[in-house]
Design a binder for these strands. Structure first.
Lengths: 252, 252
DNA sequence: CAGGCCAGTTGATCGAGATCAATTGGGTTC
DNA sequence: GAACCCAATTGATCTCGATCAACTGGCCTG
């Protein structure tokens, strides 16, 4: 009922490689950061960036390695710069709810909390900037515009969470899967990975745990969508043939 | 499948009456506000409060009246000072998901958004402070400590939302109802309404739409809990007899 | 106080999605 | 290329919660 490792190393799309790149020197990483404008750092000017960079540490994770785990003392906040991570909560008996997937530019900071309330680990090889909470807090407290930006990100996150509540509580399996595909495609487009084929780096188990379904139901639903010519299942993703139909399902 | 009016006038608890009170004069309301320390306003000193109060307008709603509706241009943010509100999203076909219940002290502000992403209306007679977004934004932008406070509130909200995702996606009906009772009791305790009997001002339909269940399942589950001596159903609420049991159900 | 209204409860049945159980197939190892 | 591994698919069956349908009881109205 749980987990799903997906440790197999998957080929990198050109896009992923590009967003990972700048880790050579210890200086000027931030100014060269490909996802800066997408991330909370987009609110920082050159001067702030230099100082911000000073409190950051780069971390790199292979697939299935943990960025942090629920219950640990929350000593750091993170900014994803490359790869894909899954964020999830577990029940004592092993039931799992994936509460989201993190993409480059996403900020993972459970700020006023003493412990992480969820776990995060890599699906595809992840790079992230790690900031000690104390230094991070100190930094933002004297930069109101930055705090404002973080607030916007938190609000967006909250809206997505509420959208997901509607999906989990009131939608059918078919609607859930369609909404997931449409939503995921939009998120990939947002970070510049807009292709005909929607890449799905996460396992079927991850998708099932995200949608509150079983792996079998996800699989069957995708298969049916393929039979009905809405999409084609390809290795590592799906190619959407009938987007309007998918979007109608996701909305209705 | 939708709605539930619950317009019947319910007796006020002393607590509710106390939190509603200060609406006589146009000055000094905030300094006398019973829920200030619980709300975002807890971060404001006397000087700030005076100015903050100047941009506020009091609104009062009878049960089932709307504070705002999803899709409307988001011209105001709100701070609940008395009563109970339900926050919900609707699907085109009428399916409803209650995404939360708002209590005195709760802040309803979908800040960087042009339109409300959910609807809010009164369950019990509601009083709230209404702030035009522009004035509100202007106010907070020059008060970083206030922004920090709002950020904390947003983060807490997000954590609750993620907790709710786990509940909606992975818990049984029994666990859902138990978790709801325990969580609601904790929220009432937080605003100072800590009594033996947990008051449930919302209808069974509201509870069902909050938990992703039907009204029948909620009713049957409560009845079963009563048969099993875990609680007693009383008018307007339940009396929890076996809290440890309920908490175990909610956690497991 | 008769009648109606509506929230809530209870019962009977149904069905979407879960569970159990093979089977397939791509990828890796030796 | 044989053996294996494991994610994914497919099939058969079951079950929890939904649906459909009365029924109850508190409360309001005339």
């Amino acid at each position: 009922m749980t987990a799903g490792c997906n440790c197999r190393s998957v080929e990198w799309t050109e896009n992923m490689i590009r967003t990972i790149s700048p880790l050579r020197a210890n200086f000027g990483r931030c100014t060269a950061c490909a996802v800066r404008s997408l991330s909370i750092c987009g609110a920082l000017d050159e001067t702030d960036l230099v100082e911000f960079e000073r409190i950051a540490r780069q971390v790199h994770l292979a697939p299935s390695e943990a960025l942090f785990s629920a219950g640990q003392v929350a000593s750091s906040v993170h900014n994803l710069t490359a790869g894909v991570a899954r964020l999830y909560k577990l029940l004592p008996d092993g039931r799992r709810q994936v509460i989201g997937f993190a993409l480059p530019g996403d900020f993972l900071g459970t700020m006023p909390s003493i412990r992480y309330s969820y776990s995060a680990d890599a699906i595809k090889r992840v790079s992230a900037c790690r900031f000690p909470v104390d230094a991070f807090k100190h930094f933002i407290e004297q930069r109101p515009h930055f705090l404002l930006r973080i607030n916007e990100f938190a609000s967006r996150e909250l809206m997505l969470a509420q959208q997901q509540m509607l999906l989990l509580g009131r939608r059918t399996a078919e609607e859930k899967v369609a909404a997931f595909l449409v939503g995921w495609r939009a998120r990939l487009a947002h970070i510049g990975d807009e292709r005909q084929t929607v890449s799905l780096p996460m396992s079927r188990q991850d998708i099932a745990d995200y949608l509150g379904l079983t792996i079998e139901t996800v699989s069957r639903t995708l298969t049916r969508f393929e039979r009905e010519k809405m999409l084609v299942i390809v290795s590592g993703g799906v190619r959407l043939l009938d987007c309007p139909r998918a979007e109608a399902m996701a909305a209705a």
